[in-house]
Simulated scan of single mutants.
Amino acid sequence: MKRLTSPYGCRHRPVRYASDLTDREWGLISPCLPGPRRLGRPRSTDLREVVNALLYIATTGCQWRMMPRDFPPFTTVQSYFYEWRATGLWG
């Protein structure tokens, strides 16, 4: 199976998981997520894939390290989760 890579280096999966967001659901969630930071490197991680990874973990109950490699690295997903939890985004 061929993988497609975006210009930002993230991989797009041809196979979808049942826990992945639909385009309509993403349209509702994306405005609530923080925008890019003003300082530092531009974001290279696709936030939709981060949310999909979090939903996968919540649905399957798998450990961070056991996440499929289709998603961004588990350390990236984990850091976004902890940041969003600390800022009250998931409240």
Score class of each variant (00 low, 15 high):
residue 11 R to S: 13
residue 37 R to V: 08
residue 16 R to S: 07
residue 64 W to D: 05
residue 87 T to G: 00
residue 79 S to Q: 04
residue 78 Q to E: 13
residue 21 L to A: 04
residue 15 V to N: 11
residue 37 R to E: 14
residue 53 A to D: 01
residue 24 R to Q: 13
residue 10 C to L: 13
residue 56 Y to R: 07
residue 14 P to W: 04
residue 7 P to V: 08
residue 53 A to E: 04
residue 15 V to A: 01
residue 14 P to N: 03
residue 80 Y to L: 04
residue 9 G to F: 14
residue 44 S to N: 06
residue 21 L to T: 00
residue 17 Y to G: 05
residue 53 A to K: 01
residue 64 W to F: 06
residue 67 M to N: 05
residue 36 P to F: 11
residue 32 C to F: 08
residue 13 R to K: 10
residue 46 D to W: 11
residue 40 G to I: 12
residue 74 F to R: 14
residue 79 S to A: 10
residue 14 P to Y: 07
residue 12 H to K: 12
residue 3 R to T: 01
residue 34 P to R: 01
residue 43 R to Q: 14
residue 61 G to H: 11
residue 2 K to G: 12
residue 57 I to C: 03
residue 46 D to Q: 10
residue 62 C to H: 15
residue 56 Y to D: 00
residue 26 W to N: 06
residue 31 P to H: 03
residue 43 R to W: 04
residue 86 A to M: 05
residue 7 P to M: 14
residue 72 P to W: 01
residue 62 C to L: 15
residue 44 S to H: 10
residue 81 F to Y: 14
residue 87 T to R: 00
residue 30 S to Y: 09
residue 8 Y to W: 12
residue 67 M to F: 14
residue 31 P to K: 11
residue 58 A to P: 02
residue 12 H to E: 13
residue 15 V to Y: 11
residue 74 F to I: 11
residue 61 G to Q: 13
residue 61 G to F: 07
residue 41 R to K: 14
residue 46 D to T: 06
residue 69 R to D: 08
residue 22 T to N: 10
residue 47 L to T: 05
residue 38 R to W: 08
residue 23 D to L: 07
residue 12 H to C: 14
residue 1 M to P: 06
residue 5 T to D: 01
residue 47 L to W: 00
residue 53 A to H: 02
residue 7 P to D: 13
residue 54 L to T: 06
residue 68 P to M: 08
residue 52 N to I: 00
residue 9 G to P: 09
residue 59 T to D: 15
residue 71 F to S: 05
residue 57 I to R: 01
residue 39 L to V: 08
residue 5 T to G: 02
residue 48 R to H: 03
residue 31 P to I: 15
residue 80 Y to G: 00
residue 28 L to W: 07
residue 62 C to Y: 09
residue 39 L to N: 09
